[in-house]
Design a protein around this nucleic acid. Structure first.
Length: 440
RNA sequence: CGGGGCUUAGCGCAGCCAGGUAGCGCAUCUGCUUUGGGAGCAGAGGGUCGUAAGUUCGAAUCUUACAGCCCCGACCA
């Protein structure tokens, strides 16, 4: 993509409302634009990151056996009356009426709807286990939205829902998501710690939050450092093996780790002092097992092997991709801007033509741009007629993992400069060497 | 939902107290000079001063109402 033809509205100054670094950088780097309190438009650069995160989430959900579908954002109030949550959910639910005065709502979550879909089509235990997920916009009318997309009213959520014949099966489904989440966050370049968590209005008795440690986090958390030493489950993990998944779950949940709601002072004090973590964290995922809380009132049953109808055991599993964008920035940035992990960077390479109009730099850039693009690299080519300083500042701000600096000075020796955003390290290389390095 | 604050050009702000018809920096556009870390000079464009009503000869400025937004707290898959 040529920057001169892209839409990248960068701000030199920080809008005053942005308090935390991720919010500031998302506004400055042109990822988002606020349209209302807690409601944001995703600009091209932000959307690219969001899509990359979604792609990784999808891969890991699919790998674990979950199946993607897509449910609507608008739901019927009647559905929520069945579960009893229409009145219970309170003012956080945005209620609306259509032209026929029918009561509708903008979905804050989808347990009711997925249960309705399930009961309409599944009759037999032979169709279980089943895990259905979607990535869809949610709306929760927060009293006080803040911190940009970290705590917004409209936000994107991957929510998965599992259905099993019994509690044992449901535990296995829970573990599948547990492992899939560990892999997902690791692939995003994040260190997420699963912590025992409160179940809140979802209900149920087993729940873990996946927390990223960050001083700007809204949750107070306590953990044993030992949890950080656990290996990330391998790509070839057998998701059908109850034993294998349970072993991973046991290993990860053995060290103490809990949010403040579930904090056990005595257990925490038993952790050696040099291994105690008392910090703040950002919740990027939350998984629940809640048994028959919805299947019973909503009559989502299957016929079991014994011929009797039983309500299915369910769990729900959420990840917030839009919040993850902010969390990634909180975890990886410096004075100059964002430092994207390779896996989610909106562009793999920023190519800077330091003297647009110079035959040599123009040609070298064209060669690099063509060769990198042909090999599937997403390149943002800064072909603007700008001063070098502005180009450097832009490239650092938007945080592409690699920068290729092409100027007359280097070209005089037949070299261009390759810069690693994360370390600031630069090396002078020929064009061929640069290509070899980036395409390796 | 309690408390506090803000709203003037795309962004950041001044002007308001002591009413006289709007200004600064950045950004944008034009020209010249510059060109390896957000250039310099000269010029230009852009604002019904959040909305509505009131007071006044005259309102960005004073009064009232409303709206939007932000911060602290409480709340929060």
């Amino acid at each position: 993509m040529r920057l001169s033809r892209y839409f990248l509205p960068i701000l030199r100054e920080t809008p005053k409302e942005a308090e935390i670094v991720s919010h500031r950088l998302m506004l400055r780097a042109g990822l988002i634009r606020q349209e209302s309190a807690g409601i944001y438009a995703w600009l091209p650069l932000g959307l690219k990151v969001l899509n990359k995160i979604n792609a990784i989430i999808r891969e890991e959900q699919n790998r674990s056996g979950a199946v993607e579908l897509l449910m609507p954002v608008i739901q019927s109030a009647d559905l929520w009356r069945e579960s009893g949550r229409y009145d219970a959910y309170g003012k956080e639910m945005l209620r609306i009426k259509d032209r026929h005065e029918r009561e509708m709502l903008f979905g804050p979550t989808n347990e009711e709807m997925i249960t309705e879909i399930f009961r309409g089509s599944v009759r037999s235990y032979k169709d279980l286990p089943l895990n259905l997920y979607h990535i869809q916009w949610k709306f929760r009318d927060e009293v006080r939205p803040r911190f940009g997309v970290m705590r917004s009213r409209e936000f994107l959520m991957k929510d998965a829902y599992s259905f099993d014949l019994d509690q044992e099966g449901a535990r296995h489904s829970y573990n599948r998501m547990f492992v899939a989440y560990l892999r997902t966050f690791a692939r995003l370049g994040l260190t997420a710690i699963p912590m025992r968590a409160d179940t809140g209005p979802i209900g149920g008795d087993l729940s873990h939050e996946f927390i990223i440690l960050a001083s700007t986090g809204e949750s107070e958390v306590f953990a044993d450092k030992a949890v950080l030493d656990q290996p990330i489950p391998a790509v070839d993990t057998d998701f059908d093996s109850r034993e294998a998944l349970d072993a991973i779950f046991q290993a990860w949940t053995k060290p103490y780790a809990a949010t403040s709601e579930m904090h056990d002072e005595a257990a925490y004090n038993a952790v050696p002092a040099d291994r105690q973590i008392s910090a703040r964290g950002i919740e990027v995922g939350h998984i629940f097992y809640f048994g028959t809380k919805y299947s019973e009132p909503m009559k989502a049953t299957v016929t079991g092997p014994d011929g009797r109808e039983t309500p299915v055991h369910m769990g729900s599993y959420g990840i917030g991709p839009s919040r993850l964008v902010a969390a990634l920035i909180e975890a990886s940035h410096d004075e100059a801007g964002i430092i994207w992990p390779d896996a989610v960077a909106p562009f793999d390479v920023s190519l800077l033509n330091l003297k647009v109009g110079d035959a040599g730099t123009d040609e070298a850039c064209a060669t690099l741009y063509k060769a990198l693009s042909a090999r599937g690299k997403d390149v943002l080519y800064d072909d603007r007629d700008e001063r070098t300083g502005a180009k450097f500042a832009t490239a650092d701000l938007i945080g592409s993992p690699w920068q290729v600096l092409v100027g007359p000075k280097g070209l005089a020796e037949g070299k261009v400069e390759l810069k690693r955003r994360k370390t600031g390290e630069r090396v002078l290389l020929t064009i061929e060497e640069t290509l070899a390095r980036l395409l390796a």
